[in-house]
């Protein structure tokens, strides 16, 4: 008998593939939410693997807020074309036109309209009954309690006290019309697993993840990129005195909207160096995400409202 063992990455990979196949078999109209970040990139590769030699039988959907980094839009369009996937882009045009912005509405309300509302409207517009998301349980403490299959009511809301138990690899995919399920194939992956897998599989990622000298302003321990100061601070409320602008070698540990995503100091220009950095990291992955910091329960609150 040979050695019938799986490495931890293979184990995670097989589990994610199993989950994706279950969704395709059990739901009528699934979609994969694509946020252009590293987790989305891994999820795409897993989808390719799950349905090889065919293409994965669902479209990708990007909920765009209009505030993403230009490098993300470029990467998105090129990568989607390369793998031959179908991409749907949806925006909450009403609130984008109204100028929704964290400095005007506060972080929570801005997210609520541009991301949560944008997502819920898009799901119902297309009639999707299952949506893959790249969220991981290790990202944030309320996500640690998510299931692989997270059932949302007609308003897209999550009720953490009324979740379905998930046993073995038997997923309950039964829902009523109008309800939908968020499915998280990367539930058991950690940030380190994601990077190790990106290295193992040579998965393309947005260059913003790699360090390079960038002009930034230090704002409460976070490096805010100056190239986009109009987007970060459209009304000049924060003030970016030129004197405080410094050029620092930095990279983005996670990617979101420009106004809410800071960079961290780093010299990591290769995947290996990023992995070393993640292993040695003293601060959590979402530390540079301004959206999680507003209150101690802010992620849980967003999830209850329909956020991922």
């Amino acid at each position: 008998m040979g050695s019938y063992t799986l490495t931890h990455l293979q184990h995670l990979e097989q589990e994610s593939i199993h989950v994706m196949r279950e969704v395709v078999a059990e739901f009528k109209n699934p979609v994969m939410l694509y946020s252009v970040g590293k987790d989305s990139s891994v999820m795409l590769r897993l989808a390719q693997k799950a349905f090889h030699p065919g293409r994965f039988p669902f479209p990708l959907m990007h909920i765009d807020t209009g505030y993403k980094f230009p490098a993300m839009y470029e990467f998105r369009d090129r990568h989607v074309a390369d793998i031959g996937a179908r991409l749907i882009v949806e925006r909450n045009e009403e609130w984008i036109a109204k100028g929704a912005h964290p400095t005007r509405l506060g972080n929570d309300k801005c997210c609520q309209q541009l991301k949560t509302r944008g997502l819920l409207d898009a799901l119902s517009k297309h009639g999707f009954d299952a949506a893959f998301g790249g969220a991981r349980r290790d990202e944030e403490k309320s996500r640690a309690k998510e299931r692989f299959f997270s059932v949302r009511d007609r308003l897209g809301q999550w009720d953490p006290k009324n979740q379905r138990p998930e046993l073995w690899s038997l997923y309950n995919a039964n829902i009523d019309d109008g309800e939908n399920v968020r499915v998280f194939p990367l539930s058991n992956w950690t940030e380190l697993d994601v990077w190790q897998y990106i290295r193992q599989e040579s998965i393309p990622i947005v260059p913003l993840y790699f360090a390079q000298p960038r002009r930034v302003v230090r704002l409460g321990g976070i490096l805010v990129p100056c190239d986009h100061r109009d987007i970060v601070d459209p009304d000049g409320k924060l003030g970016f005195p030129d004197a405080e602008i410094v050029e620092v070698s930095c990279r983005f540990r996670s990617l979101g909207c420009i106004p809410c995503t800071g960079a961290i100091e780093s010299d990591a220009v290769t995947i290996d160096q990023i992995i070393e950095e993640v292993i040695a990291a003293r601060r959590s992955e979402r530390e540079n995400r301004l959206i999680d910091l507003t209150s101690d329960s802010s992620m849980e609150q967003k999830k209850r409202e329909g956020y991922f």
Binding site: H8, D138, K141, A144, K161, T190, E300
Partner: peptide, 30 residues
């Protein structure tokens, strides 16, 4: 570190299954 949900923080008890991860030299643990 482990109290995930707001209700739990109030009650000071764990009320659901929560998943945690760590790695050592030999293994990844769930």
């Amino acid at each position: 570190l482990l109290d995930g949900l707001a209700a739990e923080r109030e009650q000071g008890i764990t009320i659901d299954v929560a998943y945690r991860y760590f790695q050592t030299a030999r293994r990844k643990f769930i």
